Simulated assay, not measured.
Amino acid sequence: ALIAKLTPQIKALKVGPGTSPGLDMGPLVTRSHLDKVSGYIADGVAAGAQLVVDGRGIAVPGHEGGFFLGGCLFDRVTPQMRIYQEEIFGPVLCVVRVGSLEEAIALINAHEYGNGTCIFTRDGEAARLFADTVEVGMVGINVPLPVPVAYHSFGGW
């Protein structure tokens, strides 16, 4: 159900030059970074993850030489995959499926990076357990990742 709801939203993201109003995303910063993120996407496909939305190859009229990449959505990502293990720094969302809240917390706590995570739930007990036991620098409960403004510390767990 989550994948079904995410797919049209990711496909509908508006990508274009960063100076244009009404966009969701601008270009990546350099050609080499676009190539690097595209390499992650290719690597995820080769590793067996399901690429549900592929944002590669989008065209932005009037900016054909730009470093644009649309939103990408992977499903069935596993912790052994490079797209799970490394920070991509691009518009790529990876969905890892787990069987329980405890398994999700263990997976988060075992990851090398502990910058931040969030949970969306209607269960107050699950929210408290998550906040009390997950080992990351920032925790969001029913909000996207609460990334701080520049003058706050940001260093992960």
Rank of each mutant, 00 (worst) to 15 (best):
A1G: 08
L2Y: 11
L2M: 11
L2D: 10
A4K: 14
K5L: 14
L6F: 06
T7Q: 15
P8G: 05
I10R: 11
A12D: 07
A12W: 05
K14Y: 05
G16C: 02
P17G: 12
P17K: 09
P17T: 09
S20D: 11
G22H: 08
L23K: 01
D24Q: 02
D24C: 07
M25L: 15
G26R: 03
G26S: 07
P27H: 01
L28D: 03
V29Q: 06
T30D: 14
S32M: 08
S32W: 08
S32D: 13
H33R: 04
H33D: 10
H33N: 12
D35V: 02
D35L: 05
K36F: 13
V37F: 05
V37R: 04
Y40N: 09
I41N: 04
I41G: 12
D43Q: 01
G44N: 02
G44P: 01
G44R: 12
V45A: 12
A46Y: 13
A47V: 10
G48N: 00
G48D: 11
A49P: 08
Q50L: 05
L51M: 05
L51P: 10
V53W: 00
D54V: 05
G57C: 08
A59P: 10
P61Y: 14
G62D: 13
F68N: 09
G71H: 07
C72Y: 04
L73I: 02
L73D: 06
F74Q: 02
F74Y: 00
D75T: 11
R76H: 14
T78P: 11
T78I: 05
M81E: 08
M81V: 03
R82N: 13
R82M: 05
I83S: 08
Q85N: 12
Q85T: 00
E87N: 09
I88W: 15
F89I: 10
G90H: 06
C94E: 00
V96G: 12
L101P: 06
A106N: 14
N109T: 15
Y113C: 09
G114V: 05
G114Y: 03
T117S: 06
T117F: 07
T117L: 00
C118Y: 10
F120M: 00
F120E: 02
T121A: 12
T121E: 10
T121K: 03
A127G: 06
R128P: 03
R128A: 12
L129F: 04
L129W: 05
A131I: 02
A131W: 08
D132E: 15
T133E: 14
V134K: 03
E135I: 01
E135L: 04
V136M: 03
V136E: 04
V136F: 00
V136I: 01
G137Q: 01
G137Y: 14
G137F: 13
G140M: 00
G140S: 02
I141M: 07
N142K: 13
L145S: 15
P148W: 14
P148M: 12
V149Y: 04
Y151P: 04
H152S: 07
S153M: 04
